[in-house]
C-alpha cells in the first residue's frame, strides 16, 4: 500500500535555512577558488619557468636580472592596463603603436632636445597626453556613435596616430633629449626596483581598485558580460565605453612618453612591436577576448610571464633563430597546463 501523502501549504514547509546557508557558502568558496585558480596556475607556470631558467643559467635569478625583467615588463604592463579595460567590454584597441608614436614625438619636441627645442616644462607632458586622449576619444566616439567595430576604428586610429607622429617628426635629424636626468630616470633604481616599474605597479593597483570598487568598473564588466542587460538596467553604456577608450589612449600615450625617455630620444616608430606583446599578455593573463571576465592583476601576470620567457631564453643561450618557435611552444604548453584544471563542460572554446 502506498504511503499516504499529506498535503501541506507552502507556508507550512519547514525550511532548513542553515543547510541552505552552508550550501551557499560552499558555492561561494568554489566560485572564489574557480576565480583564483587560473591566475594561481599561471603563477605556478611562472615559478616553473623561473626554476628551469635558474638551473640553466644561475645569473637568471639575480637581483640585477629581476630589475631588468621588471624594467622590460613595465611598458607592456602600462599599455596592458588600458587594453584590459577595452577587452573587458568585448572590444579591442589596435591603435597602441600609433598613439605611442604621436605622444612620444610630441614629448621629445616639447622637451629640451638636440634639434634645439626648448623645455616647455609641464606642457611637455600635458600636451602629448591630451593628444593621446583625443585619439582615444575619437576612437570611442566613432565606435559608439557610428557603431563601427572597434578593431576597424582603432586600426584606422593607429595610422592616424602614426601619421601625426610622422608629420610632427618631419625630416630633420633624430631628436634626442638633452637632459640626461630625464633619460636615466626611467631605469633608475628606487627602493630596489626601477622607477618605471613603480609607475606601472602603482597604476596597476589604481586600475584594479577602479575596476573592482567603482561604478565605472562594474559597468564595464556588466557591458562585457551582457550589453543588452546592462543597457536595459539603465547603465550609461555609451559614456562608459567612450571613457574607456580615452583611458586606453592615455595609457598608450604615457607609454610613448616613457619609451621616449628610456631611449633618450624618439622617432615615429617608438611604439613598434608593443601591440603584439600587450594583447597576447592580456589574453594569456586570462582576460577573455569576449569581455566580462578578467582583471588588472591577471594582465600583470601575463606580461611578466611573457617577459620572463623572452629574457630566460636569451640567458639560457637559445639560438635567436629558434627563440620565436621555442617561446611559442613553451607558451602553448603553459597555457594548456594552466587551463587544464579549469576545463568545464560549459567553457566552450571557440
Amino acid at each position: 500500500m502506498a504511503p499516504t501523502q499529506t498535503s501541506e501549504s507552502p507556508a507550512d514547509v519547514k525550511v532548513d535555512t542553515a543547510a541552505i546557508r552552508a550550501r551557499e557558502q560552499v558555492t561561494a568558496r568554489r566560485v572564489v577558488f574557480a576565480g583564483s585558480g587560473e591566475p594561481l596556475a599561471l603563477i605556478g607556470a611562472m615559478v616553473v619557468l623561473i626554476a628551469i631558467f635558474s638551473i640553466l643559467n644561475p645569473r637568471f635569478a639575480t637581483i640585477e636580472n629581476l630589475q631588468n625583467v621588471l624594467n622590460q615588463a613595465s611598458l607592456p604592463l602600462i599599455i596592458g592596463l588600458g587594453a584590459t579595460f577595452v577587452i573587458l567590454i568585448g572590444s579591442i584597441d589596435l591603435s597602441v603603436e600609433g598613439v605611442m608614436g604621436a605622444s612620444g614625438v610630441a614629448f621629445v619636441l616639447l622637451s629640451a632636445n638636440s634639434r634645439g627645442g626648448q623645455d616647455t616644462g609641464i606642457w611637455a607632458w600635458v600636451l602629448p597626453l591630451l593628444l593621446a586622449a583625443a585619439l582615444g576619444l575619437t576612437s570611442g566616439l566613432i565606435y559608439t556613435m557610428l557603431r563601427v567595430p572597434s578593431f576597424i576604428v582603432t586600426l584606422g586610429m593607429w595610422f592616424v596616430g602614426f601619421g601625426i607622429a610622422t608629420i610632427l617628426y618631419g625630416t630633420d635629424a633624430y631628436p634626442e633629449l638633452t637632459d640626461d636626468t630625464i633619460t636615466l630616470w626611467v631605469a633608475k633604481i628606487t627602493f630596489g626596483l626601477p622607477n618605471v616599474f613603480w609607475v606601472a605597479a602603482i597604476l596597476t593597483a589604481i586600475m584594479a581598485i577602479v575596476l573592482r570598487f567603482t561604478r565605472f568598473g562594474r559597468v564595464a564588466l556588466a557591458i562585457g558580460n551582457n550589453e543588452e542587460i546592462a543597457r536595459s538596467n539603465g547603465m550609461p553604456i555609451i559614456k562608459n565605453k567612450i571613457f574607456i577608450f580615452i583611458v586606453a589612449g592615455l595609457f598608450s600615450g604615457l607609454a610613448g612618453i616613457l619609451a621616449t625617455m628610456q631611449m633618450g630620444g624618439t622617432s615615429n616608430h617608438i611604439g613598434d612591436g608593443y601591440l603584439f606583446i600587450t594583447i597576447p599578455a592580456v589574453v594569456i593573463g586570462g582576460t577573455s577576448l569576449g569581455g566580462g571576465k578578467g582583471g588588472m592583476f591577471r594582465t600583470a601576470i601575463g606580461v611578466l610571464l611573457l617577459t620572463i620567457l623572452n629574457n630566460g631564453l636569451v640567458l639560457a643561450g637559445v639560438s635567436p633563430s629558434y627563440q620565436s618557435a621555442v617561446s611559442g611552444a613553451i607558451l602553448v604548453v603553459a597555457i594548456v597546463a594552466t587551463a587544464w584544471p579549469q576545463r568545464g563542460r560549459l567553457r566552450i572554446a571557440k
Partner: peptide, 15 residues
Amino acid sequence: DPQLAYKNSKDLIAK
C-alpha cells in the same frame, strides 16, 4: 630597432 637592441643589451648584460 633601437628598442629591441636596448632590450637585448639589457638581457646580455644580465647574462
